[in-house]
């Protein structure tokens, strides 16, 4: 069982690394906002695997906070990135 959790955690960490590559490479800031939103989903998955590895359901509410604030962040970036076009 712990092997399955270790493999899952390794895969999620590789996914987070790939997303960080896209954050670094992303040509526009909107790509970065999108990939940071994906990073937050992956970190939520990492928290879930950590909860199982340590058998401590303490950080469960953190995942709710993560999924909501991630959404607010990228939507506000999208809203203010488009502002230049609206005023022009």
């Amino acid at each position: 069982m712990s092997i399955i959790l270790a493999i899952a955690l390794g895969m999620l960490i590789c996914a987070a690394a790939l997303v960080l590559v896209r954050v670094a490479l992303g040509p526009t800031n909107l790509d970065r906002a999108l990939s940071l939103d994906v990073l937050i989903v992956i970190v939520t998955g990492i928290i879930a695997t950590q909860i199982l590895r340590t058998d401590d359901p303490g950080p469960l509410p953190i995942m709710v906070v993560f999924s909501l604030t991630g959404f607010v962040g990228s939507v506000s970036v999208a809203r203010f990135m488009a502002r230049k076009q609206d005023d022009a």
């Binding site: 069982m1 399955i4 959790l5 493999i7 899952a8 955690l9 895969m11 999620l12 590789c14 996914a15 987070a16 790939l18 997303v19 590559v21 896209r22 490479l25 526009t28 909107l30 790509d31 999108l34 990939s35 994906v38 989903v41 992956i42 998955g45 879930a48 695997t49 199982l52």
Partner: peptide, 26 residues
């Protein structure tokens, strides 16, 4: 069953991250 679905979920997240890194357009 929980471990297997967790493994499946993380593979799908990894595939999504690979797609995010490789696809050319936003």
């Amino acid at each position: 069953a929980g471990g297997i679905s967790l493994l499946l979920g993380s593979t799908i997240a990894l595939v999504g991250a690979i797609g995010l890194a490789r696809l050319p357009d936003i």
